[in-house]
Simulated scan of single mutants.
Amino acid sequence: MTAEAAQPAEGDPLIRPSTTEHPLYDQVVEACRTVYDPEIPVNIFDLGLVYTVEINDAGEVGVVMTLTAPGCPVAGEMPGWVAEAIEPLPGVKSVDVQMTFDPPWGMDMMSEEARLELGFM
Results as ranks from 00 to 15, higher is better:
Asn56Leu: 08
Val63Tyr: 10
Ala83His: 06
Leu47Glu: 06
Asp102Val: 11
Asp96Asn: 14
Gly76Cys: 10
Asp37Pro: 05
Pro90Ser: 13
Tyr36Cys: 05
Thr34Gln: 14
Val50Ser: 03
Tyr36Glu: 07
Thr68Gly: 09
Thr100Arg: 05
Phe45Thr: 00
Phe101Lys: 01
Ile44Arg: 00
Gly59Asn: 12
Trp81Cys: 04
Pro88Phe: 05
Val82Asp: 06
Tyr36Ser: 02
Asp108Tyr: 00
Gly62Gln: 12
Ala58Lys: 15
Pro103Arg: 00
Ala85Asn: 13
Pro79Trp: 12
Thr52Lys: 11
Val61Ile: 13
Asn43Tyr: 02
Asp57Tyr: 08
Thr52Gly: 08
Ile86Trp: 13
Pro70Met: 08
Gly80Gln: 13
Glu112Met: 06
Val63Cys: 10
Gly76Ser: 09
Glu77Gln: 15
Glu87Trp: 10
Gly106Trp: 00
Thr34Pro: 03
Pro38Cys: 01
Asn43Cys: 01
Val35Pro: 01
Gly80His: 14
Ile44Tyr: 02
Gly91Ser: 10
Glu117Asp: 14
Thr100Ser: 13
Leu116Gln: 15
Met110Pro: 13
Glu54His: 11
Ala83Met: 09
Cys72Gly: 07
Cys72Val: 01
Gly76Ile: 10
Asp102Thr: 11
Gly106Arg: 03
Val95Met: 05
Leu47Val: 06
Ser111Leu: 09
Val63Arg: 10
Asp37Tyr: 02
Gly62Cys: 12
Gly48Glu: 01
Thr66Leu: 02
Cys72Met: 06
Ile86Glu: 12
Gly80Asp: 11
Met110Arg: 13
Glu60Tyr: 03
Ser111Val: 08
Trp105Cys: 02
Phe101Gly: 00
Gly106Met: 02
Glu54Ala: 08
Gly71Lys: 03
Met65Leu: 12
Thr52Asp: 10
Ile40Leu: 00
Pro73Leu: 11
Ala85Val: 14
Pro103Glu: 01
Ala58Arg: 15
Ser111Cys: 11
Leu49Pro: 11
Pro103Ser: 02
Ala69Trp: 03
Met78Asn: 05
Glu84Leu: 13
Thr52Leu: 08
Glu113Val: 12
Ile86Arg: 06
Met109Gly: 00
Val95Leu: 04
Met99Tyr: 06
Glu87His: 14
Ala114Ser: 06
Cys72Thr: 02
Gly76Leu: 08
Val63Asn: 11
Gly80Asn: 12
Pro79Leu: 12
Ala114Pro: 02
Pro90Met: 07
Val35Leu: 02
Gly62Asp: 14
Pro90His: 08
Met99Leu: 15
Ile55Gly: 06
Thr100Asp: 07
Glu87Lys: 15
Gly91Asp: 06
Leu67Asp: 14
Thr68Phe: 06
Val53Cys: 12
Thr52His: 10
Gln98Asn: 11
Ala114Ile: 00
Val92Tyr: 04
Glu60His: 15
Thr100Asn: 05
Asp102Ile: 10
Trp105Gln: 04
Leu49Cys: 08
Glu77Leu: 15
Asn56Ala: 04
Val82Cys: 07
Ala114Tyr: 03
Asp108Thr: 00
Ser94Gln: 13
Leu67Trp: 13
Asp46Met: 00
Tyr36Asn: 07
